[in-house]
Design a protein around this nucleic acid. Structure first.
Lengths: 151, 151
DNA sequence: GCTTATTACGTGTATATACACGTATTTGTT
DNA sequence: AACAAATACGTGTATATACACGTAATAAGC
């Protein structure tokens, strides 16, 4: 669906304004596509994101702050997301022995297994639904980096 | 900041995967930029969005459902966002006389005034921070539409 | 070594998304 | 007209973001 139909408006100040709304709408669309798959596994998008980050260091542990700094949405409240993963026994939490301020987190075997299965679903969904080619994706990446160039 | 730095990872399956994360991260970045401006006016991004939609029909009223269908994030709980705007006397709410199931909403004078001021800020912030040209924005728009082509 | 600053978390509040469900009202069918 | 179906809201719950603040532990300065 075109943006104009999706938000029932074609009143944009200019193409940059339209592109900004398009980015926001596409992100919402993408989250919806991915969340639909994750729901089968009882995971939210954010819980999945935390687990993916943990897998990057697996089988090593990571402290909460390291996880937070890798999140896509930087204001995520990582301690609370971890709480829910601990309840489901998908990750394990312990006080660091090196620095007792730190809480170190690691994937449990069942967390790792759930992550692998859900990642397959996510990847399939992405390949099936995100309908651009690799070369177009490269151009898109360059443009998005440029959008944020002034940060 | 490049995506790799922002999320401290360069493990992408391919460019389409990277582009998906890039869209999500850029949307978060953009919301942050805009919310910083809106905070001066005591508005959230979503409250602003509702007011912008209302302005499209001003001085006519709109029913809740019409507003909801124009939201960027389609699962927004519009009645509750409106509650907060009513509390701040930025919009007025009344039961429709034509169809008593409908609640019709309209901007108050102070709502309209706040909207105009905040829109100036938003537009300035967007022009200052979103650093692509109009022609690049056109290409970006085409690519984003293509990403969602299978919806 | 003692004091101060910093760091890493955890928690509380306001607002939001996502979704299910109940209720009042209107529309459609017969 | 009476009943069934659909519609438009409002509300409740779980989880999330955004942000402020408190506390325990460590680091830094003297």
């Amino acid at each position: 669906m075109k943006l104009e139909e999706a938000i029932q408006s074609n009143k944009f100040r200019n193409d940059v304004h339209k592109a900004s709304l398009n980015i926001l709408y596409t992100a919402w669309w993408l989250k919806t596509v991915l969340s639909r798959e994750l729901k089968e596994y009882g995971l939210t998008h954010e819980q999945y994101n935390v687990m993916r980050i943990l897998k990057g260091k697996h089988p090593e542990q990571m402290c909460v702050r390291d996880i937070a700094s890798r999140m896509i949405e930087k204001n995520s409240n990582v301690p609370r997301i971890i709480d829910r993963l601990v309840t489901k026994k998908l990750v394990k939490s312990a006080t660091s022995e090196v620095d007792r301020r730190e809480t170190v987190i690691s994937l449990t075997p069942s967390g790792l297994s759930l992550l692998d299965n859900s990642t397959s679903s996510i990847n399939q969904a992405m390949d099936a639904q995100v309908s651009i080619g690799q070369q177009e994706a490269q151009v898109l990446n360059q443009l998005l980096e440029k959008v944020r160039a002034k940060e």
